[in-house]
Design a protein around this nucleic acid. Structure first.
Lengths: 163, 163
DNA sequence: GTTTTGGTTCTTCTCTAACAGAACTAAAAA
DNA sequence: TTTTTAGTTCTGTTAGAGAAGAACCAAAAC
């Protein structure tokens, strides 16, 4: 009476790694990503092997295939992960895009300038009688404009400082 | 047969103002605030009078008293709005904190540096064998550190440029 | 052809954020 | 004292996000 052998290819993780995955997960959830998505990113960031298969991902994280599939596609679409293939192997090997963090950071800085037109419009539409308030709004616009002009320069400066 | 007179003190708003409130609302929702909260902020930003009462707020926006109450308290706690009172008047007059936008923007820039310790920890915990990836992580840490050093300087620079 | 693999898609379920409405309250007005 | 005002708190309700599980599918292996 052989018991059914269910072999799941989980990735071996230390306690520390598991803990770190959770912390990355929480962090990324705060950036607006769903839990499963966040933890997949975490796993791909901390695991010793950088390229993991679909099965390794969902079985290691104990999430369903469907959850994994949707999450992975979301991450692929937003270019946070990518995959490679190997000759004579049907599987895809998923890994985080190497510049993911840098991209996230840059995005965050730029998303910033989306404020401009809105605040500007509020300023233009306002009654002229609220001088102080309007001045403060105008100031905000100035600040954003200043920043979005300086960021690229700062980025360049950093690039140079690396060399 | 007099019909019950329900007088609601709505704030008069132009079509343009209403439209702008919605746009501000959507924008702030994307920053993670609930719809009602976002639209209250919007209203207080665009209305000709900067200081509105509780009743004016909930009746103008067609939201319930409870929704308004909770939203207003949330905004008060996060110092996005404040209120003034007038002698011989029990009402509170709510208004956006004049530096709200600047604060939001600064917060956003700073929230940024919370990345450091996490990415650093990921880097430290990683196996040493994945050289390229680890180098890229280290690079990210460098970028964040660089940025959080430069921001205050940039802010100062802006302050000066205003004078 | 049949089976297995590597996923995808569909349906269902659950949980909670967000709000409404009504009951409540404390202070002020009458 | 009673009533009104300016909110607050409590109790549902509802819609949607997120995930599970099963059915499904296409390509490859057998």
């Amino acid at each position: 009476m052989k018991s059914e052998q269910v072999l799941v290819k989980k990735v071996n993780l230390t306690k520390k790694q598991k803990e770190l995955i959770e912390r990355i997960g929480i962090f990324m959830e705060q950036q607006g990503l769903p839990p499963a998505v966040a933890r997949i990113c975490g796993l791909l960031m901390v695991s010793d092997r950088l390229e993991l298969t679909f099965e390794e991902i969902y079985s290691t994280l104990n999430i369903s295939k469907s959850a994994a599939s949707n999450a992975i596609n979301l991450l692929l679409n937003s270019h946070k992960i990518e995959y490679i293939t190997k000759p004579g192997d049907r599987k895809r090997y998923f890994k985080v895009c190497i510049d993911q963090w840098e991209k996230m950071l840059k995005e965050r800085l730029q998303g910033f300038s989306s404020y401009i037109s809105l605040v500007e419009e509020i300023h233009n539409q306002r009654t002229k009688s609220t001088k102080t308030f309007n001045a403060s709004l105008k100031d905000a616009v100035g600040f954003i404009k200043f920043m979005s002009k300086e960021f690229p320069l700062l980025y360049e400066k950093w690039q140079k400082s690396k060399k």
